[in-house]
């Protein structure tokens, strides 16, 4: 059952990220729902599930992107694992905590991607950081925090985490 729900999540993420999110983009920047989904799986199902689902999300999304596969795996798998690991270390997870976690991971991933793009000169890298990486990190953080807040209004988070 768990596997099936993860499979559906991964398969649905692709069309949502590719076709629907561009309509909701702000200044041509759309959030990375894959990152948010991997973090949520880590938060609610533990670091192992977060890691594996993050890998799957990263792999499938990289099939539809010009980006590097290793970076997609590292980012999505990493955020799933990190979310699961961190949630065990803190007594109370808030939406701000989730937002900051996603912001940090998205920022790190974006900076790594910008630095590894050898075709860009320094000015273009800084331009990319200012115009894409930073706004996307903020967007990812906001979407993550917002979704967590919405979920926390509807569901008892502690119960969800133990299931």
């Amino acid at each position: 059952m768990k596997f099936l729900s993860y499979l559906i999540l991964v398969l649905l993420l692709v069309p949502v990220q590719m076709t629907l999110l561009p309509h909701l983009s702000v200044g041509n920047i759309k959030p990375d729902l894959g990152l948010v989904a991997a973090a949520f799986v880590g938060l609610f199902a533990g670091e192992m599930d977060g890691l594996l689902v993050g890998f799957a999300i990263g792999w499938v999304l990289s099939l539809f992107s010009a980006g590097e596969l290793w970076l997609s795996l590292l980012t999505h798998g990493g955020v799933g694992f990190l979310a699961g690991f961190v949630v065990r270390q803190v007594s109370h997870v808030t939406s701000i905590f989730v937002g900051v976690l996603l912001l940090a991971v998205s920022l790190a991933s974006g900076l790594l991607a910008a630095v590894t793009l050898t075709t860009l000169d320094r000015a273009q890298v800084w331009q990319m950081v200012g115009a894409i990486v930073l706004p996307q990190a903020c967007f990812d953080g906001l979407v993550g925090a917002g979704l967590y807040w919405l979920l926390s209004q509807r569901v008892q988070m502690a119960r969800l985490r133990t299931e």
């Binding site: 590719m18 076709t19 999304l61 992107s65 991607a113």
Partner: peptide
């Protein structure tokens, strides 16, 4: 064209 890049870092169509 089926979609666009899943990230914002590349300008891509599928």
């Amino acid at each position: 064209v089926m979609g666009r890049d899943t990230t914002n870092r590349y300008q891509v169509i599928i």
